[in-house]
């Protein structure tokens, strides 16, 4: 019985999360109409009058996530393919810890690196090319976030690629296909649902990531898709709105919970979809 109660802690946590974000969001939406929250193009919680339109934050989140994915998907996927199809066991043994090490780097460290090394570098290069680069460009945050996701994509894809039965590879190789043709025409198509779910998990991870963007992306919520501009994200706003603020019932702090609600549902939906997809895929090969 005690054990059952302990297991229920996990459920209680989820309920607690839901209850706290829902309750505070409810209070928030009594003050700010839902529609102006969802479709407003201005985010200025401290302005007067304050504006709570989530669109600029969504745009910023999407922009950084897209940059991260463009970086991480090819790197992660090709790493996984190389490790599972080409690397000798010794090479595999020595490269896997590199990816695990990268996966274990705390995001605050990556944020420091993004803000102090990558962002100035991009700015320098951009200025050299005559471009107007913000000192807290979306590109810097997105690139470093991409590197953060590489181990996630590669380890998930590695599992999934290894789950493709060897008999399919043998069948293709015995037809006289080269290893790369085998990968492109047989292994990847067979692993596609699994890889799609890996990428969905990566997206969920990217939109929920906080420290890198807090340190390397901007605070000003610009509705912009320019990777060289400064944008803000949902997580940045949650973090900055609630840090150091003691009063709890202002619209400003409550809006953070509304943003939390949006974030929670986005990531939850992505996770559920990804888990479904991967379960279906597993059944297919068992």
């Amino acid at each position: 019985m005690v054990l059952l109660v302990c297991s229920a802690v996990a459920v209680a946590t989820t309920l607690g999360i839901l209850a706290s974000v829902l309750f505070e969001s409810f209070v928030f939406f009594r003050e700010v109409p839902l529609l102006s929250f969802l479709f407003g193009t201005q985010w200025a919680p401290t302005g007067s009058p304050a504006a709570f339109g989530i669109l600029p934050l969504l745009a910023g989140t999407i922009l950084i996530t897209v940059i991260a994915l463009i970086t991480a998907t090819p790197l992660g996927l090709f790493s996984a393919i190389y490790l599972s199809e080409y690397a000798t066991p010794t090479l595999r043994k020595s490269l896997k810890p590199v990816l695990e090490l990268l996966a274990g780097i705390p995001t605050v460290v990556l944020g420091f690196f993004a803000a102090l090394t990558v962002a100035p570098f991009i700015r320098q290069v951009g200025t050299g090319l005559g471009l107007d680069v913000a000192s807290e460009s979306a590109l810097a945050a997105g690139l470093v976030m991409g590197m953060m996701i590489v181990p996630l994509i590669s380890s998930l894809s590695d599992d999934i690629i290894n789950a493709v039965p060897q008999s399919l590879r043998d069948g293709s190789l015995a037809m006289g296909a080269t290893p790369s043709e085998t990968v492109k025409r047989v292994v990847l198509p067979a692993a596609l649902p699994g890889i799609a779910s890996a990428i969905m998990l990566a997206i969920s991870r990217a939109i929920g990531e906080t420290m890198i963007v807090v340190m390397a992306a901007g605070l000003a919520a610009n509705l912009s898709f320019n990777p060289l501009a400064a944008v803000s994200t949902i997580t940045v706003q949650i973090a900055t709105l609630l840090v150091g603020d003691q009063e709890f019932d202002s619209d400003k702090t409550l809006s953070a919970f509304a943003l939390g609600l949006v974030l929670f549902f986005f990531t939850l939906a992505l996770n559920i979809a990804a888990l479904r997809l991967v379960r279906k895929y597993r059944q297919h090969y068992e």
Binding site: D170, A174, M175, A177, A190
Partner: peptide, 28 residues
Amino acid sequence: RSHVGMVFQKPNPFPKSIFENVAYGPRI
């Protein structure tokens, strides 16, 4: 291997259509 083909113990058709399975070799 295009001269010496192979058939395996367990049937291992690719997860593709019947047509694409047979067309696989000629295509590559």
